[in-house]
Amino acid sequence: MGVEVLASEYRRIMEIVADADGSVMAKDVARALGRELTPGKVEPVREQLRKLADQGRLTRTGAGRYLPR
């Protein structure tokens, strides 16, 4: 299934990861989404990244970094 089946924020996260020059961390994605870089704003993004990796849509590398599949 393509990204069109994902909720809009998940699609945006996929775009951010795909457009990045290399791997990204949750705080990088949170910043690109316009969120504050506080734990309460970054942790939900980290969970969304994990879900996308668990679905096989992203690759999780060491140290909590993510790459497009």
Rank of each mutant, 00 (worst) to 15 (best):
L33P: 02
L52Y: 07
G22M: 07
S23D: 14
K41G: 13
D28N: 14
S23I: 04
L52S: 09
R31P: 02
Q55G: 08
R60E: 15
R57N: 08
E36V: 05
V29S: 00
V42T: 13
D28F: 05
R46C: 06
D21W: 13
L52W: 15
K27G: 01
V24Y: 01
T61D: 00
A53T: 07
A32F: 03
A53P: 02
L37M: 00
P44N: 15
K41D: 15
R60T: 08
V29G: 00
T61P: 01
Q48R: 15
V45D: 00
R35C: 02
E36R: 10
Q55K: 05
D21R: 07
G62S: 09
R57C: 05
P44C: 12
V17I: 10
G62R: 12
G22R: 09
T59D: 10
A18P: 00
G62D: 12
D19E: 15
V42F: 09
K27M: 07
D21G: 11
K27I: 00
A18G: 13
A32R: 04
D28P: 01
E47L: 07
L49P: 01
D28Q: 00
T38G: 09
P44Y: 08
L52G: 01
V45S: 01
L33I: 04
L52I: 05
L37R: 02
L37S: 11
A53N: 06
V42P: 03
G22E: 14
K41C: 13
A53S: 09
G40N: 15
E47G: 03
L49A: 04
A20C: 08
P39T: 12
A32V: 04
A26K: 02
E43G: 04
A30Q: 12
D54S: 10
V42C: 00
